[in-house]
């Protein structure tokens, strides 16, 4: 019992320290191989947008709130790109069961996002994503500004406000 208490105290202290540090640092993307929609390999350490903000959104074809979120982003994407230079990268966590549905789904909807397949959740795990949808916003210097899980209609307004803040 004593040991357990020690363990939890230790963990708490460490996690707090770690949390503070994680906040301070520039985010470096983990090096994980994922695929493009036409089957090429892409390494996630190469994610970049020439000093402009990046939004990474984890989703799946079977996730209704994810789709609603990406439709809402799509409605605003042209404006956001023009105003802030934002690039949206969407990472599908569909596994081998549904991975081949992704390209017809994304193109069928006419989405212009940079789109990747994370078939065995390697990148998802490396980014500590638990459930989808989960989005990360990085500013032009690569600092993690905001993350967001779940989706409610209107969430995109909060994102837009943040985008304006970091672009100024």
């Amino acid at each position: 019992m004593k040991n357990r208490y020690k363990l939890s105290t230790l963990l708490l202290i460490l996690l707090t320290t770690v949390y503070i540090q994680a906040q301070d640092n520039k985010f470096s993307f983990p090096s994980v191989n994922i695929k493009t929609l036409d089957g090429k390999t892409f390494n996630t350490s190469e994610i970049e947008n020439g000093g402009k903000p990046i939004l990474i959104s984890f989703w799946a074809t079977w996730c209704k709130p994810c789709i609603k979120e990406l439709i809402a982003y799509d409605d605003n994407y042209d404006d956001w790109q023009e105003e802030t230079g934002l690039k949206i990268i969407i990472i599908s966590i569909d596994d081998s069961k549904s991975v081949d549905r992704v390209a017809p789904f994304v193109n069928g909807r006419g989405w212009e996002y940079e789109s990747y397949l994370d078939e065995n959740s390697s990148f998802k795990r490396a980014m500590n994503v638990i459930n989808v949808p989960h989005s990360f916003l990085f500013d032009g210097n690569g600092k993690l500004i905001w993350q967001h899980t779940s989706y409610a209609e209107g969430d995109e307004d909060e994102l837009y406000e943040l985008l304006l803040q970091i672009s100024n």
């Binding site: 081949d100 549905r101 390209a103 017809p104 994304v106 193109n107 909807r109 006419g110």
Partner: peptide, 14 residues
């Protein structure tokens, strides 16, 4: 498995 897609249209067979 095969799929074909272009803007606004997607087909998937498996």
């Amino acid at each position: 498995s095969m799929n074909y897609s272009k803007k606004g249209f997607g087909l998937f067979l498996n």
